[in-house]
Computed example of a mutant assay.
Amino acid sequence: MSLDIRYVTNGVKTIYRVIDGSADSFNVYTSRDDIPKSIRHYAPEGEPDFVGPDMAFIFGVRDILYPNFPDCSHPQYSGKRCIAESCKYAISEDWTKCPYFNKSQEE
């Protein structure tokens, strides 16, 4: 059995994302106590890992942690998904200061 449990946050919302290798999907839990008892002991304790919008997309939870996140407004990538913290145009470490970040769509 392959099992992957991630404890992640966007700074506001915190979740456990659980992938059981025998399934084609994953489950999301808001509390460690909600995870099935048979696998709960594998779930990380302590502080969750912060994930930006791109890493949340990679984990499959961007719609949960960053709902209605804006698309890129760079002319070359217009209409494509914004990769936020992974973008080369995100000057410094604050991707929200990227000149192509469309803040009007963010919730």
Rank of each mutant, 00 (worst) to 15 (best):
D94R: 11
L65W: 04
Y66S: 01
A84P: 07
N10Y: 06
P48T: 13
D63L: 02
D63A: 01
C98Y: 06
V8C: 02
K88W: 13
W95R: 03
D49I: 11
E85R: 03
S2L: 03
I15V: 09
A23S: 05
P44S: 12
S31H: 13
P36F: 00
I91G: 07
D33G: 11
S73A: 13
R6Q: 15
Y42T: 08
D20L: 12
G21K: 00
P99H: 05
E107K: 12
H74P: 01
S92P: 01
P99V: 07
T9A: 02
E45M: 13
Y100L: 09
Y7I: 05
L65C: 03
D24L: 14
A43Y: 05
K80V: 07
S92F: 10
P67V: 04
E93K: 15
I35L: 00
S22R: 14
T96P: 01
S73T: 00
E85C: 07
I58K: 12
D71I: 06
E106M: 14
M1C: 08
Q105G: 04
D49M: 10
P44N: 10
F50A: 04
V28I: 15
D94G: 00
V8G: 03
W95H: 03
S25I: 05
I83E: 00
I35C: 06
I64C: 03
D24Y: 11
F57H: 15
N68H: 07
A43M: 00
A43G: 02
Y66N: 04
E107W: 01
Y7D: 05
A23Y: 00
V12I: 13
D4M: 04
P99R: 04
M55W: 02
Q76H: 04
D24R: 13
C82F: 02
S38E: 14
P99A: 08
T30F: 13
D63S: 05
Q76K: 10
G46K: 00
D54N: 13
G52V: 00
K103F: 10
D54T: 04
I39M: 09
F69T: 06
